[in-house]
Design a protein around this nucleic acid. Structure first.
Lengths: 206, 206
DNA sequence: TAGATTGTTAATCGATTAACAATC
DNA sequence: TAGATTGTTAATCGATTAACAATC
């Protein structure tokens, strides 16, 4: 067991390992070898063993990996076995979809608040949560201490939201805008999901 | 000018170059050096020159890059200067958001059809397009020849859609399900956007 | 011409694959 | 014990960074 620091590439593969192992579990299997897993996922057995060994020796020579305990280990590594509070800003189309369509709990988060700056939506309900005005965010955060914020606002709103995000003491931001939010200096992790960029790369490959 | 094959990593950065250059253009600038661009984007100047040189010498020594022509070049490389037809399957929440929120034309596609298997939505309108029944897809494709399909269906629907996707002669698939659609053997490019996987990696970094 | 900045080669770094000894 | 498969080291591959000659 060598605690190497896992590379971002490894981390990115973990949710997929998790999901694939789960599908094997549902088939009633309880063990799997790196080469079986590799074949299913289109990876090499070597890579899988390398990946899993960043975190410790989860397998057993001559046997393979126990599916149940490997699922648990990966959940633990990703920390999705415990939840942290999250809020969402921007109750438009996209915010509506994200809050309803995604299972936050399964991803280690509990969505506890939705905020918007438009009085026409404040007070209505989305994903069983009453939408609050953005002016209430800071007080809400002081009380509930959410660690993550999802931004489903127009790109133009990003600039003025930045100081608020810092003030609210979030540790992570999931940004769906087209902006380039950088909060490295504040020690805040920012994950940007630019759907239009994905679409553009698809255009390239066609 | 050496026509090296661009790596996937380079392609992934192109939309961001495009967008950043555009914001410089809007500021009224007409030239930029690799180091200025690097600073704005948090990359190294070396990487930018390396990236752009996969495609040819777009810059000029002692001067830098002309913003207008660089934007044009990148558009041309990504092929977003021309559009191809695309359809969307799955007129639920997510399909609604994708079709309304994304500017397909800006990404080199024209959304020409939306399909669903539920009679309760067939006939209604989404993003100015009348939703058709999935049974009409094959005929529609024979007539209009869309090259790309967006899948915003439940994961469970993926398996039965697979043969239809092949039959419709799509060249690309943008898959939002949690499934593992593999169409390499058919020469079809598949881009999977698993939002829940992104959310899980955010949990890791917090 | 002098200054600036590219294009390009070489060096480094990181990630993937191959190989095999350890061991269940 | 023999067979299987991991854990781990070494080799390869690819991507990023550094350096500098070419040249506008």
């Amino acid at each position: 067991m060598k605690p190497k620091t896992p590379s971002p590439s490894v981390i990115k593969r973990l949710p997929r390992y998790h999901r694939t192992l789960y599908s094997f579990k549902k088939k009633g299997l309880d063990r799997i070898s790196s080469s079986e897993l590799a074949q299913t996922m289109g990876l090499t057995a070597s890579q899988i063993r390398q990946d899993l060994n960043c975190f410790g020796g989860f397998g057993q020579q001559g046997y393979g990996y126990n599916i149940d305990s490997l699922i648990d280990e990966i959940s633990r590594i990703l920390k999705i076995d415990t939840t942290q509070k999250a809020v969402l800003i921007g109750a438009g189309y996209l915010g509506h979809t994200i809050s309803n369509y995604l299972d936050f709990n399964q991803c280690g988060f509990e969505l506890v608040g939705i905020f918007d700056n438009s009085n026409s939506v404040v007070g209505s309900t989305m994903a069983d949560i009453t939408i609050k005005h953005i002016d209430e965010l800071l007080d809400f955060c002081k009380e509930h201490n959410p660690t993550m914020v999802v931004l489903t606002v127009p790109t133009a709103a990003l600039k003025q939201l930045k100081p608020l995000i810092i003030e609210c003491n979030f540790k992570g931001v999931w940004d769906f805008t087209l902006g380039d939010l950088n909060l490295d200096n504040e020690g805040i992790f920012v994950k940007n999901t630019r759907l239009s960029d994905s679409l553009k790369t698809i255009r390239y490959y066609i």
